[in-house]
Amino acid sequence: MSNVLITCAGKRVSLVRSFKTELKLIFSDSKVYTTDSAPEKSAACRVSDGYFKVPPVTHNNYIDDLLQIAIENNIKLIIPTIDPELLVLSQNIDLFKKHHVEILISDYENIKTLINKRLTNDFFKKLEINYAKEFDKNNFTLPLYIKPIDGSRSIDNHIVKQESELTSYHFSNEKLLFFEYLEHQYFTEYTIDMYFDRNNKLKCLVPRERLEVRAGEVSKAITRRAWFLDNIATKFAHIPGLRGCISIQIFVNNETTVIYGIEINPRFSGGFPLSYLAGANFPKWIIQEYLLGKTKIPYYDNWEENLMMLRYDDEILIHNYVEKKTKFIGF
């Protein structure tokens, strides 16, 4: 049995369901498990085949607990979903491989670069992609976009258009970086979901125009076969160390068509379900590569163009809920 584990599942119900669908088409008896620090209150955990409670990724026992779960439950593939776990998991790829467990993750050096907003700009520079200029805190030009060097989900991001809006917090917090602000009305924003095979070759990319965002995650979007598709595909054709799903956020100037790289997330993006439903079957390719040992994934470009996704809140009801205090909870 080849089971899959999606970590820090949270609200990623669509991602869990996509892996359940694709896994059972290939391994009818296999299961998709999930972890979370509060799994009983996680919607994604509740729709998975079973879930386990783990400590926060910063806890000393996180890796040991995760490895124990994998060994005891015939888990052969781990899918990380949030930035804070990427560094520690990338440092432990070989440890898990010794126990015949694969982690869908890029190598440590790439992770270290891409979760750092300043180093990500260096990455864009090497690929000859423009990026928002970073200012020194003692020498800047308004308006500003301020964000943490290692931030995600738009937490602690600030748009500053007047000097009176700046506070001592912005200057004293060493994690906050000052960037030039790209005014949204002059740009179109895209996220590009990319799939890199085990040989670090790009096999698919789907640009999604971001129409509306909530808490840093897209709530309305549409797939676009944009003019820059071939250009981006050429630049990212082979990036040593990149594996699995990589999502890139770019701004395109509506008049000059200049592309600005904003950030790169070396994991599944929150809006990936749209790419999957458009036909970019990353879960299937992952299962083929990491569980079936398929050595060649063909390039795929036949995804549905102009497919719009409109997200809404739904409910998962748990009847007679009683808090459980056990360390691991599976079913």
Rank of each mutant, 00 (worst) to 15 (best):
L77E: 06
I6T: 08
D107L: 07
E209C: 10
F135S: 06
K20E: 14
Y290H: 03
E134C: 11
R214V: 12
K98A: 10
D193E: 12
S14F: 00
L310N: 15
T113R: 13
V47R: 01
D150H: 13
E85P: 00
C8K: 00
C8I: 03
M1C: 10
N306R: 13
G279L: 08
Y33K: 09
T256P: 02
C245A: 14
K98N: 15
E189H: 04
N265I: 03
L211A: 03
K112Q: 11
Y290P: 00
L177F: 05
A132W: 00
L23G: 10
Y108R: 04
E305G: 03
T257E: 14
D83C: 04
N265C: 07
Y276F: 15
T35N: 11
L307C: 02
I262A: 10
E255F: 07
A38I: 13
E304W: 00
Q288R: 14
E22M: 05
T257F: 10
F236Y: 08
S90W: 01
D64F: 10
N253M: 06
N254Q: 15
I93R: 06
I318R: 08
H184N: 14
K24T: 13
E40H: 07
I297L: 12
G241E: 03
I149N: 12
I75L: 06
Q288Y: 14
P273H: 06
E183A: 13
F282L: 11
L66S: 05
K220W: 02
R214Q: 11
I192G: 09
L307D: 00
F52D: 00
H59I: 03
M1W: 04
Y276C: 09
D36I: 04
Y131H: 12
L277F: 04
Y62A: 03
H59V: 02
V101A: 07
I103L: 01
D230K: 13
N302R: 11
T256Y: 03
R208I: 12
Y62R: 02
A226C: 10
D107S: 07
K296C: 11
Q162P: 02
I146Q: 05
P39S: 10
D83H: 04
V54Q: 06
N60Q: 13
K133S: 06
I79Q: 03
I78M: 05
Q288M: 13
H319F: 12
N130Q: 13
E22T: 05
I262G: 08
K220T: 11
K161N: 15
E174Q: 14
A233K: 07
K147H: 02
K31F: 04
E255Q: 14
T223C: 06
D29P: 04
N60F: 11
D150Y: 14
Y260F: 15
V88L: 06
K235E: 07
I111Y: 00
L177E: 10
L205D: 02
G10P: 07
S106P: 06
E315L: 14
E209D: 02
I329E: 12
L291Y: 01
G50S: 04
I159M: 09
Q162H: 15
L142M: 07
Y299A: 10
H170D: 04
V101I: 15
I246M: 05
E72G: 01
R12T: 08
N60I: 12
S219Y: 03
C45I: 01
Q185R: 12
A215S: 14
E304S: 10
A9I: 00
A43N: 06
S154W: 01
L23I: 11
K325V: 12
E72D: 15
L144G: 01
P55D: 14
